[in-house]
Simulated scan of single mutants.
Amino acid sequence: MRHRSIALNPADVQVRIRGGIRPGDVRRARETVAALSRLAHEPVLAARVTLAAAPGRLEERTAEAVLDVQGRLIRARAAAASTRAAVHLLGDRLRERLLETTRDWENLRKRRRPAA
């Protein structure tokens, strides 16, 4: 039986900021990661996002997320010209990682299923 995932609220997503990051980008990052937490195959215990603006390089912004899915860390990272674009790419990559992890977990369960 598949575990029922527990989606996070945006307020549950911890955000670290390095450099000049707008509050709207912080809110968008929280909402994106919280929404994607529903894809996890097990409860998401914690989520952390780091948004950074490279010092002296306004054209490079990075977004990184780490989700603790029942003790397994799922990571994704993206860089773009704007924080908004970096968060969007981060969401795409995090979605891929979560779906890959779910498929891997389901395949592992099928291999371990006891013979009837």
Rank of each mutant, 00 (worst) to 15 (best):
residue 71 G to I: 05
residue 115 A to G: 12
residue 54 A to W: 09
residue 53 A to P: 06
residue 73 L to V: 12
residue 16 R to Y: 01
residue 52 A to P: 00
residue 71 G to C: 01
residue 61 R to Y: 12
residue 45 L to P: 02
residue 86 A to F: 05
residue 48 R to D: 01
residue 102 T to F: 05
residue 26 V to H: 07
residue 20 G to K: 08
residue 39 L to Y: 11
residue 91 G to A: 03
residue 96 E to P: 06
residue 16 R to L: 02
residue 114 P to T: 15
residue 92 D to M: 12
residue 71 G to D: 03
residue 54 A to Q: 12
residue 31 E to Y: 04
residue 50 T to Q: 06
residue 84 R to F: 04
residue 25 D to P: 01
residue 10 P to E: 03
residue 12 D to I: 08
residue 59 E to P: 06
residue 5 S to A: 14
residue 115 A to F: 13
residue 13 V to A: 04
residue 40 A to P: 06
residue 113 R to G: 05
residue 28 R to C: 05
residue 97 R to N: 08
residue 95 R to F: 03
residue 92 D to V: 14
residue 76 A to R: 02
residue 73 L to G: 04
residue 43 P to W: 07
residue 102 T to K: 07
residue 46 A to T: 07
residue 93 R to N: 10
residue 1 M to E: 14
residue 27 R to A: 13
residue 98 L to A: 12
residue 23 P to R: 09
residue 90 L to S: 04
residue 36 L to V: 10
residue 53 A to S: 14
residue 27 R to E: 13
residue 41 H to E: 08
residue 76 A to W: 08
residue 7 A to L: 05
residue 64 E to K: 07
residue 114 P to Y: 15
residue 66 V to N: 00
residue 105 W to C: 00
residue 64 E to M: 07
residue 26 V to M: 05
residue 37 S to G: 09
residue 57 R to T: 11
residue 47 A to F: 10
residue 1 M to Y: 15
residue 116 A to P: 01
residue 61 R to D: 09
residue 97 R to T: 00
residue 70 Q to N: 15
residue 56 G to N: 12
residue 13 V to S: 11
residue 57 R to D: 12
residue 71 G to F: 03
residue 74 I to M: 12
residue 16 R to G: 05
